[in-house]
Structures are given as C-alpha cells and as structure tokens.
C-alpha cells in the first residue's frame, strides 16, 4: 500500500513542484527582472557614447555632487542618532521605552511626500518660520538644508533598526565586564560595543545611504527643481524623463540602479559575514 502510494504521490509532487517553481520564476522575472533590465537597455539604446555624454552633462554632474553631499550629511545624522537610540533602548529600562521605539519607526510609516511637506510648512515662504527666515535671509526650503532635513526625516530609523535587535540580543554582559575592570564609558563603547555591532552598523549605514541617495518624494517637495543647484540624481531622472530625454534619464537611472545592486550585494555579504562571525563565536 505504501509502496504503491509513495511513488504515485512523488510524481504528482514533482509536477506541482515544477509548475510552482516555473510560476515563481516567471513572477520574479516579470515583476523584478524586467524593470531592472529595461533600465540598462534603455540607457544604452543609443550606444555607449550617448550614455557617457548623458552622464558627463554638467547638470547631471551637479546632481551627482549634490546627491553625494546630501547622503553624507544624512548618513552622519542617522548614524549618530541610531547608535544613541540603540544604546538607550537596548541597554536601559525606562518608562516610555516602547513608545520611543514606536516613534523611532514612525518615519517608515509616513509617506515620503509628508517628510518634504513638513519642511515647507515650517520653513517655506508662507510657513510658520517663513517671515523670520526671510527677514534674516536664511534659505532652507529650495536649498540644501531643506533637502538634507527631508532626507534625514526619511532615513532616520535605518541604523537604529539594525542595531536595536542585535544589541538587545547580545546583552550587556561584556560591557559590564569591561566597566567593572575599570574601562571608561567611552572606552567600553569603542573597544567592546563597536566591534560587536560593526556589521549591523555597516548594514544600517549602507541602507540609509542607499535610501538617502535614491529618495525622491521627500526631496522633490523641498527642492524646487533648480537645475545645477538643488537637483539630486532622482530629480534629474524625473526632469530628463519629462523632457523626453529618455536615454539620458535612463543613463542617470542606471547609475542609481547600480547603486541599488551594489547595496544589495554588500548587504548580503555583510549578513553572511555576521552569520559566520556569530557561528565562530558561539562554540567559545
């Protein structure tokens, strides 16, 4: 009975299995593969020279420079914030701790457009602080500070999110040991905590950086789209696309797509590293 039943079911299973794998591959190909492929194909549709010309265009170079600057500023804020947040949430018990956790995640659940909108409402010409800023000739909206503020709003949780679960899991024993041996707080942080969290910290920085460089909605609202001045790369993609400069738009987009692929690759590598790291540590 079992001898007759098993092979029949197995062949039945093999068919279902092949069908499901085929379907899944097709879904992944259509939903994920094609959008990536068309970026590359369209970018090189008129050859490598047009591609290079699009990337070395002055407005595009300015956009790349601004994007790097904005990402650098935002990642620094996000990292300092993330480490501080993880330290106080994973190392201490206090009232309102779970509320704080929820608030840290808040930027993830809010539309990026709102991240830009709030900057305009605060610092725009008719915003709450508009008259004051105008009187003192300070520009925030349609300038670098506004773009950085909007980007920081969006990227703020990235590092904290990577660090908090890890530091909670690791516990405070090693730090307590270092402190009881006479290390100062900063020494303990730099010599004990930082080495323990380095892979998660790098992952967080990596993801925050990718999001900062690629952020569109938040930045679009505060940038004012001033060419050569307040355009980041994603905004440059938009402007070129709406100008029917399709190849140029996809050329800039291909650089951002490369950034995404490199980010994913590095993230995988870091995850594998931290896995082997913890596996090595476990037996000792």
């Amino acid at each position: 009975m079992t001898a007759a039943g098993v092979p029949a079911r197995r062949s039945d299973g093999a068919l279902a299995r092949r069908l499901l794998i085929g379907l899944a591959v097709a879904v992944a190909f259509i939903l994920l593969g094609l959008p990536l492929a068309i970026v590359i194909v369209e970018a090189f549709a008129r050859g490598a020279w047009t591609y290079l010309a699009a990337l070395t265009d002055q407005d595009t170079l300015d956009a790349i420079r601004l994007t790097l600057l904005v990402a650098l500023c935002s990642v620094v804020v996000t990292t300092v914030f993330g480490v501080a947040a993880a330290w106080c949430i994973a190392r201490f018990e206090f009232r309102g701790r779970s509320l704080l956790l929820t608030v840290i995640d808040l930027p993830f659940s809010v539309s990026p457009v709102i991240a830009g909108l709030v900057q305009v409402l605060l610092f725009g010409r008719r915003g709450w602080l508009g008259p004051f800023l105008e009187a003192h000739d300070i520009r925030i909206v349609f300038a670098l500070p506004g773009i950085v503020l909007a980007t920081v709003f969006v990227t703020l949780p990235f590092v904290a999110r990577e660090l908090i679960p890890l530091m909670q899991e690791q516990g405070a024993e090693e730090e307590e040991a270092a402190l009881s041996l006479g290390a100062s707080g900063w020494q303990t942080f730099l010599r004990v905590t930082l080495p323990n969290i380095r892979f998660a910290l790098l992952t967080g920085v990596l993801l925050a950086n990718a999001r900062a460089m690629g952020e569109f909605g938040a930045v679009s609202v505060v940038s004012g789209h001033i060419r050569g001045a307040t355009n980041t790369m994603p905004l440059q993609v938009e402007i070129l696309f709406n100008d029917y400069q399709i190849e140029a738009a996809f050329a800039v987009a291909s650089v951002l797509a490369m950034l995404a692929l490199v980010t994913l690759g590095l993230k995988l590598a870091l995850e594998r590293k931290s896995d082997t790291h913890t596996h090595e540590e476990r037996p000792t």
Partner: peptide, 22 residues
C-alpha cells in the same frame, strides 16, 4: 531570486517609476 526580492526596497522609486512606465 531570493536576493532579487529585496530589489524594490533598494531601487530608488524614481528609477522604478520610469522603468515600469517604459
């Protein structure tokens, strides 16, 4: 494919937008 599932998380939305439009 497992790694590719994260692509929408990593790909800037504007890039996804013009790619899907095309």
């Amino acid at each position: 494919i497992d790694a590719a599932v994260d692509l929408p998380f990593a790909l800037p939305t504007a890039v996804a937008g013009i790619a899907l439009t095309a």
